[in-house]
Simulated scan of single mutants.
Amino acid sequence: MPPRNWKRFRASSLRDAMRACKDYALERRKLSVARIAELMGDVTEDSLYGWLSKSSMPLRLVPTFEMVCGAHFVSDWLAASAGRMVIPMPKGHKVSEAELLQINADCTAAMSQLAAFYADPSKVDTAELLELLQRHLEQVAFQHHNVGQYIAPQLEFEA
């Protein structure tokens, strides 16, 4: 089975988000559930398995769980389920021509699907349309922040 494209992954439920964090930790960081529980501190492997199966992790442990796993799918799902959009803070890097072309292609796909939606909503997969629009907004917000960093660069500390 090929590895997931984690940049494009969007959880459809809390259970999906929690399992995705665990899967990400296993795939990218080579962390087992036992190791995740150990790194979380005062958490047993049995407790973590229970929370994952019931989708009922204590809220105060979610940030620690995500930090250990290296992914923020639970926080993203919680925000999205409340009607909020989460845009990761850009790290600021020079964009390649290929990346700009991909942004353009994603924008074109989103706008053509949006036009089709307004022509006849019953013929458009609304979940796919929402994903396309969110991806486009994230890409544009990233570029907005990158340009803002150019206008007001951060100071570099000398070693």
Score class of each variant (00 low, 15 high):
T64E: 12
R10Q: 15
V74N: 03
L114E: 01
Q139H: 06
E66V: 03
L59C: 10
W77M: 04
P58W: 09
Q139N: 14
L137R: 13
A82M: 14
A80S: 15
D125E: 14
Y24E: 00
L137M: 11
A119M: 07
E97T: 09
W51G: 09
D125W: 09
V140A: 08
A34C: 09
R35L: 08
S122A: 11
L129C: 00
A159I: 06
N104L: 05
S55K: 05
V43N: 06
A116I: 02
A159Y: 01
D46E: 13
S55M: 04
G148L: 12
Y150H: 12
W77G: 00
L100F: 02
M89C: 11
L48N: 07
P58L: 03
F142E: 15
A115L: 07
E38Q: 12
E138M: 04
H145A: 15
L114P: 05
L39E: 02
R19I: 08
A25C: 02
S53Y: 10
I36S: 00
A71Q: 02
D23R: 08
A115H: 07
M57Y: 03
S47R: 00
V62I: 15
M89L: 15
A11N: 04
W77Q: 02
F9M: 06
A80K: 09
K94V: 15
P88Y: 01
R10V: 13
S32C: 07
D42Q: 09
Y118D: 01
P153K: 10
I103K: 02
L137G: 07
M57V: 03
A17H: 06
A80T: 14
D106L: 08
A17W: 04
K22Y: 09
S32V: 07
L14I: 13
P153V: 14
A79E: 15
V33W: 09
D125P: 06
N146L: 12
L14T: 13
H145K: 14
R15Q: 12
L137A: 08
G41E: 04
H72K: 14
C21R: 01
L155H: 09
S55A: 15
Q134D: 15
S12E: 12
S122V: 05
E45F: 04
H72P: 04
E131S: 14
Y49T: 00
R29C: 12
A82H: 14
M67D: 11
L129W: 03
F142L: 13
D106W: 06
A98S: 13
S53G: 09
E138D: 08
S13G: 01
K22A: 15
L155T: 13
A80L: 11
E66K: 05
L132M: 10
V74K: 06
P88H: 04
S12L: 10
Q143Y: 04
E158T: 05
L59R: 10
A82V: 06
L14K: 13
D125I: 11
D46H: 13
V74L: 11
A141D: 09
A34I: 07
E138A: 06
A127R: 12
G50V: 01
R8V: 02
I151P: 07
M1I: 01
D76A: 05
V147G: 02
Q149F: 10
L52C: 05
H136A: 11
I36H: 00
Q154T: 13
L48T: 11
T64H: 10
P90K: 07
L155D: 12
W51C: 12
L39M: 03
A20M: 01
L14P: 08
A116D: 07
A105P: 01
M111F: 06
Q139D: 06
G41D: 01
Q102R: 14
V74S: 07
Q143W: 03
